[in-house]
Design a binder for these strands. Structure first.
Lengths: 195, 195
DNA sequence: GTCTATATACGGATAGAC
DNA sequence: GTCTATCCGTATATAGAC
């Protein structure tokens, strides 16, 4: 199975996306050039256009994949049951999903400005679906009488901001294990919303 | 008091900073050109260099002014007293200070990557001082026995993330008044940390 | 599929006239 | 203090050879 020299589409494609993700997370979309991404991959800039029609699509794909994977993973966790358990599942899921994906989180939350309007609308609707998942749990808990919050939508946004903010300071080589982090945040979330 | 035509340093200076803040908040530092800022102000690009030595200094000044103003304003609020009241004061202060400054908040939290190392260190130390103000309150409350949190530093970061996240979705023409927002968040914060 | 070379536009910053 | 003009570097994206 001789392969023509210089033909590596099966490995170059993923490498382009990995390099773009890492560089954009570190320096920002507008500050990263296609030449930088190419250099990181080990090809010339022109070769990138075999894998993306343009720079904007590269950003959109990174963000879209992240949000799709998030929703797909959550759909495998979400279950019926008491709202308190569902909230605990959401909190733990959010932390475990996001902690190993610092670059994706960073890009998905910081580069919304750099999406064109059509792409922005797509990502926003995915994000909205995720927010709604939490809001549903809070409303269920209020109906059960186990949660009591002043405003359900505001609380939804507040809890997500609190959980997502974790990615801004957590370091894998830090003093705290994931399990401990999870317990600390669950304690805060539970107390904040319970009646 | 005849003034030479075209000489407007007393009004152009502030306008440059306002235009830069607005444009950077909207599009990001790297995506905004000096020519865009100049067009917004109503001058040519070269004229901007009467007010800033370079683009990096413009960004740093915006962030530095914001953080300095934040710490100065907090120093006028912080008082002795029971930790619960101090925490309520912090929560209310944070919201009232940040809500009318959406652009400053956005720039100060999103453009850290675009500061050079020296400038980054300065801004980080200011941010750290603000975080420490909250951490002190939490520790005082634990000593009093009114607060009980699993980890004080993590709780500090979680509370600030929750409060600051408000700026990401709050709209002045939305359904909720500042006072109501403040009450909702105080309810969440209080319950999350009290014993 | 990748390369080199290039079209075309725009970037930050400066010089010198007024 | 602002303007016009410009230096010089880099940007995205494409064309055509291999």
């Amino acid at each position: 199975m001789a392969r023509k020299q210089g033909s590596h589409s099966d490995i170059t494609g993923p490498k382009v996306r990995e390099a773009a993700l890492r560089l954009i997370a570190r320096h920002g979309y507008a500050a990263v050039s296609m030449r930088q991404i190419a250099a990181e991959v080990g090809v010339q800039a022109g070769a990138l256009y075999n894998y993306t029609p343009d720079k904007q699509s590269l950003l959109f794909d990174l963000m879209h994949d992240h949000m799709s994977a998030l929703l797909a993973a959550w759909s495998n966790v979400d279950t019926a049951g008491p709202a308190l358990l569902r909230l605990q599942a959401f909190t733990g899921f959010h932390i475990r999903f996001h902690l190993p994906r610092a670059d994706q989180v960073f890009v998905s939350y910081m580069e919304l400005r750099n999406l064109n309007p059509e792409n922005f609308a797509v990502i926003e609707s995915l994000r909205h679906r995720y927010e709604d998942a939490l809001e549903d749990i809070l409303r269920a808990g209020e109906a059960e009488g186990v949660f009591a919050v002043a405003d359900t939508r505001v609380t939804t946004m507040a809890v997500i901001a609190m959980l997502t903010g974790l990615s801004n300071w957590y370091r894998h080589d830090g003093r705290l294990e994931t399990d401990v982090i999870e317990a600390i945040y669950w304690d805060l979330v539970r107390k904040a919303v319970t009646a």
